[in-house]
Design a protein around this nucleic acid. Sequence first.
DNA 1: CTTCCACGGGAACACTGGGGTG
DNA 2: CACCCCAGTGTTCCCGTGGAAG
Length: 413
Amino acid sequence: MEAEMLGAIFTGLLEVKPVFKDKEVLRSTYTPDHLPHREDQIKAMAYILVSALRGETPSNIMIYGKTGTGKTACANFVGRQLEQVAAEQGYKCSVVYINGGIIDTQYRIIAYLARLFDKDVPMTGWPTDQVYAEFKATIDENEQIIIVILDEIDRLVKKGDEVLYNLLRINSDLKRAKISIIGISNNLQFREFLDPRIKSSLGEEELLFPPYDATQLVDILGERAEIGFEQGVLGDSVIPLCAAFAANEHGDARRALDLLRVAGEIAERSGKANVEEEHVRQAQTKIESDRIKEILATLPTHSKLVLYSVMSTGGKPHLTTGEVYRAYLNCCRATGMSPLTQRRVTDLISELDMLGIISTKIVNKGRYGRTKEISMMVPQNVVRSIITSDLRLKVLDSYTQSRQRTLGEEWDV
DNA sequence: CTTCCACGGGAACACTGGGGTG
DNA sequence: CACCCCAGTGTTCCCGTGGAAG
């Protein structure tokens, strides 16, 4: 009896006609077998990389383009094909993908590479030179070509371009193996920051991935929807609307896919058999608010405190750093945390700005110095609820309330 | 021309989690 | 075991700099 009832909650759900056939295809991490509107770039890459199939080292490639323009997908796609053909022809050629946003230090990259070629290297502890030496020795045992795809290379370089420099000149130390690099950058001004030596060698070949326009996005979504959704569940205007939203934001295919997938999820959860325009609109707001909640929840404690301080000063639109810092000191006292220096807090403020949670503008107020004007970019209630759900910061809740009671009294520093 | 506030670069330091060596 | 080396991260300390109000 009870088991039946328990079963019933699932059978009830199973009776709802599924919306998705294969949700994986609708994720932006999935590499499809066909990439519409990127034929030119793929051909260009193939043309450069084909020398690997003749046993020569291909030129290094730099790929530029904003997020969601298919850079990663194309590079992986071409890489996979190259590996396959090389294997058929009896060449040893491996394509390695590294995301510079995740593996982001010199040591970790080389250690990761070494481990891929079955060389045991500890996570930490060794001098970097030693890891280099071991890695070089290992790969040089075989005649082979290694192509390293370095995604988000701009993030990597921010922490020092030594890695790139070392990787680029590694070939001169190698007898049998050769390494060639495909760098992928979201930032079009990336090359300006580079050391000229690196620039010339890394940018032997450059490819530009322009943003997709709305009609191209429709094609992309169409192909994926074909595999990802059950037949006939998508309303006619769903795909064009997703495409239009994403096209408005620099033609981001990742965004378009997210919209489509989340719209599907929303429809499914509300028990609808079809996905309609309204679900896309809901998806649009859901994605944005999820993103912000996620960012807020994972903020380090002191960043949360700084953000709270910005908010607690009463939503004045043009706060200065000094005011925020004073409020921050009070918050620290209320929570019993030891405060950071103002220097550090300005950095935290800049980080919050970068994340789009607050917006800042540097202004010169003449006689009254130079500062940042700071204002909130997200609703206060969201911030308050998430920040006070952090155990260590719970006291702030009652703190602001008591502060409001005594509003008007000066805050002592 | 001076003055003011904080920006933001850079060096130095502390600390962590992991080596290897005697 | 003790001891020192290494990379990496977060922080503090120091300081030159900007530019309009006064």
